[in-house]
Nucleic acid binder design. Structure first.
Lengths: 171, 171
DNA sequence: CGTAAACCTTTGACATTTGAAATATTGCTC
DNA sequence: GAGCAATATTTCAAATGTCAAAGGTTTACG
């Protein structure tokens, strides 16, 4: 009868949910990872060709750009999601190139604050404008509605991940 | 009348589309990047703690796992999106640990084929099972419908990016 | 005050990453 | 069959990345 038919259908749905759905998260992760790598590589190539800069340098300067008073290295480390030791070297190289300067505030000599030099500020402004254009260009075929939805939904993924980290960490 | 009112509304939409929508792609990219970094770091930490392995090693072994006959280093490089020179070092270390072996086929002595050893195969199977579980766990708060949608929509992003790369490259 | 705990950055060892140049091998062409 | 383009991998220098340990500095507590 209709009952046994729908029971069969339900079973199929359950089975499908348990099998096909099983690795959905893994599939999503692999696709996120490959897409992010693809975009990163392209951005890296363009930054290198057009500005002679690296992606980590760009990221670091982006943080300093919107904090005119500079940031402590630890804060830079958190924002760029780069380890402390790594920030040290990055800032060192940028300082050598005259894009960033380091200073120790009077109050606390444990602290080092990094800020953009005038030159660094000017160069970054140009890079940021180009960078934004590149992203618009790379995603040109994607409907704006989908872009907005992706932004929202990836936000949910990020929240979920933050809630399930083994160490402590937040958004 | 209604006409001038709707004209005003349209203008607003246009302005909003031109201003708020302007950096949508950039916002999406920043969120994708930070989310991917977050997940990568967590996976890396767990791989290290529970298996003493690194993420690139895991990625490389994942490719070899499903190709029982092994892969040429160039093919490995493409699939893992890692440069040639990098593959050399990765495989070298994995060979030292007895997880991978290299051999040169008779036909073409330019080629090096890497494949998993029995030990490598066994260890990877355990890592893969854990890895899949970690992802399910990390994304546990996200509705399966959204997971599926994200997979599809990120696919569109990837296609678009592939169509706008400066060098040649494909999916 | 004096010491221990907490905080911030640097250093060191090692792995990964890129890009370009160097090697080695094969295949094609005249 | 000698020369040369195309393939495939390795090597190299420089930058980025993690983690753990070490260095100073400041704060808090007895």
């Amino acid at each position: 009868m209709a009952e046994s038919e729908s029971a069969t259908v339900d079973l199929e749905i359950i089975v499908r949910g348990a099998q096909e759905g099983k690795k959905q998260e893994l599939r999503l992760w692999l696709r996120m990872l490959s897409t992010t790598k693809l975009i990163s590589q392209e951005i890296r190539r363009r930054l290198r060709n057009e500005f002679g800069a690296t992606l980590p340098q760009f990221d670091l300067m982006a943080q300093l750009y919107r904090e005119h008073d500079g940031l402590r290295l630890g804060e830079l480390s958190k924002r760029t999601m780069v380890t402390n030791g790594n920030v040290t070297g990055l800032v060192e190289r940028l300082e050598t190139d005259g894009l960033v300067l380091r200073e120790t505030p009077d109050g606390d000599r444990r602290v080092t604050v990094a800020k953009l030099t005038k030159k660094g500020d000017e160069i970054f402004a140009a890079m940021a404008a180009a960078h934004e254009g590149w992203l618009r260009e790379l995603m040109a075929d994607v409907d704006p509605t989908i872009i907005a939805e992706l932004w929202k939904d990836i936000g949910e993924v990020k929240s979920s991940v933050n809630n399930h980290l083994s160490g402590a960490a937040f958004d």
